[in-house]
Structure formats: structure tokens, C-alpha cells
């Protein structure tokens, strides 16, 4: 793990992220343009779900990103908690609003998809939708915990404990909700023995997933850079005040 510490230096991070950011932004635009075209126009409608299936091209990547962002946030939290890297704390902090946004998007698109498919906007019998609602609450709690501390270092460590507790709880909550009731169709993209979705639909899905990833990387880098810059401004102001 010691190799990671090279990236904890804010100056090196600023230099590296300045080089990555334009590429990530360009990739986001290109992938979204291609992915949205393929998803909304270029792919065939589903035999059973008709055009409603196009919601999936937003819903599935958003749901995937919502979960993986939480995991990433917990990893950053663990790194910040163990090695006390301020940059890891900032990264974890800035994962949360983006991840909460993805979760909200997954919930809204899930409800929009549910309205014609199940006849209700919200189906409590669906384990995954319910788990995501709880994931959204976990994000909100994490963000709120950051707000209430005055000392950012303490806030970072308290929030890290909560993120790690949440990480252990997510599989437990998901299992319990699934055990409670399941009505959703079984997972069909990453099923053993190969995907069952037609390749004509799988490609747009993967391109949209890559677009979401690129968007996430761009936004996260932008947010971290903004916060590092804020720090520097504050440090300079302090120096000026002391001089």
C-alpha cells in the first residue's frame, strides 16, 4: 500500500489531476453523446417492455455508481482514518454528495420504470429499490455528520467510522430486505454463464456505464481541487493576518 502515499501529497495531486481532468471531461462528453444516442435512438425497443426499457440505460449505471461510490467512499475513509491523509478525507467527503445524487437518480428512474411496469410508483416488495432508499439515508447521515463538527479533522474521523459501519451494514441490510420480500426480476447482466441481455442492448448499457464513471471521476477531481484550493486560500489568509 505504501505506493499510494505518493498521491497523498496535495501538490502532486494538483499537478496530476490537472493533467487528467481535461481528458476525463472530454471522455464524459463523448461517451454521454454516444451512449445517449445508442440508448434512446440506436437500440431496439424491448419485446415485452417496449420503449420503457430505455429507462434502464440510466437506471442501471446510476444504481451501479451509487453502490460503488459508497464502497470507494468507505475505502477513502479507511485510508484517511488509518494513515491520517487529509487528501483521503477530502476525497471521502466529496464522494458523498455525488453518490447521494446517483442514488437519488436510481430511485427516481426506478420509480418511473415501476409506474408502467408494476402500476405503482413505489413498490415496497422490490428488494433492490428498498435497499437503495436505505442507501440514500446512509448517505444523508454521512453528509449530516460532516456538517455538525466544527473541527474538520474530527469530522473526518467520525464520518470515517460511520462510513465503515455503513459498509459492513449494506450487505446485511440488502440481504434482510431481500429475505423480507422479492418481486424484482433476478439480476441479468452479471449472471453466471454469460449475460442474457441481447448484445444490441448490452453495448449501449456499457457505454452509458463508462460515461457515468468518467463523469464521476471528473466531478470528484473538480470537487477535490476546489476544496484543496479553498484550504490554500485560508492558509494564505492566516499567514497574512499573522504578518
Amino acid at each position: 500500500m505504501s505506493g499510494w502515499h505518493r498521491f497523498a501529497n496535495p501538490t502532486r495531486f494538483s499537478r496530476l489531476s490537472a493533467r487528467i481532468l481535461p481528458w476525463a471531461l472530454a471522455l464524459t462528453i463523448v461517451l454521454f453523446a454516444a451512449g445517449l444516442y445508442l440508448a434512446l435512438v440506436g437500440s431496439p425497443p424491448d419485446a415485452r417492455q417496449k420503449d420503457t426499457v430505455r429507462i434502464m440505460y440510466i437506471h442501471v449505471p446510476a444504481a451501479w455508481m451509487a453502490l460503488s461510490t459508497y464502497v470507494l467512499m468507505a475505502i477513502f475513509s479507511g485510508m484517511g482514518f488509518i494513515w491520517k491523509h487529509p487528501l483521503a478525507d477530502i476525497a471521502a467527503k466529496n464522494c458523498a454528495p455525488v453518490g447521494a445524487g446517483f442514488t437519488l437518480l436510481a430511485l427516481i428512474t426506478g420509480a418511473l420504470w415501476g409506474a408502467p411496469m408494476w402500476g405503482t410508483w413505489w413498490e415496497w416488495g422490490d428488494a433492490r429499490l428498498t435497499s437503495f432508499l436505505i442507501l440514500f439515508f446512509l448517505y444523508l447521515g454521512y453528509i449530516a455528520l460532516w456538517q455538525v463538527f466544527e473541527d474538520p479533522e474530527k469530522a473526518a474521523r467520525a464520518a470515517a467510522i460511520l462510513a465503515l459501519v455503513g459498509l459492513i451494514n449494506i450487505p446485511v441490510i440488502h440481504f434482510s430486505v431481500q429475505w423480507w420480500n422479492t418481486l424484482h426480476q433476478p439480476a441479468s447482466v452479471f449472471r453466471r454463464g454469460g449475460p442474457t441481455i441481447d448484445p444490441a442492448m448490452l453495448w449501449p448499457l456499457f457505454i452509458m456505464l463508462a460515461a457515468f464513471e468518467a463523469y464521476f471521476v471528473s466531478v470528484l477531481l473538480l470537487r477535490i481541487r476546489a476544496e484543496v484550493a479553498e484550504w490554500r486560500v485560508r492558509a494564505l489568509q492566516m499567514m497574512q493576518a499573522e504578518a
Binding site: L140, G141, A144, V148, G166, N169, S176
Partner: peptide, 20 residues
């Protein structure tokens, strides 16, 4: 006044206990 925050932090974690 951290007590106001406790429900938001704790209630989601109570869900498995509630379900079972």
C-alpha cells in the same frame, strides 16, 4: 445538540433487526 442527528444515523442500521 448532537442528539437530533442520532435518529438519522441509527434508524437505517436498525432495519435488519426490525425486519427479522
Amino acid at each position: 445538540r448532537g442528539g437530533v442527528l442520532v435518529p438519522l444515523l441509527v434508524l437505517p442500521l436498525y432495519i435488519p433487526t426490525l425486519i427479522f
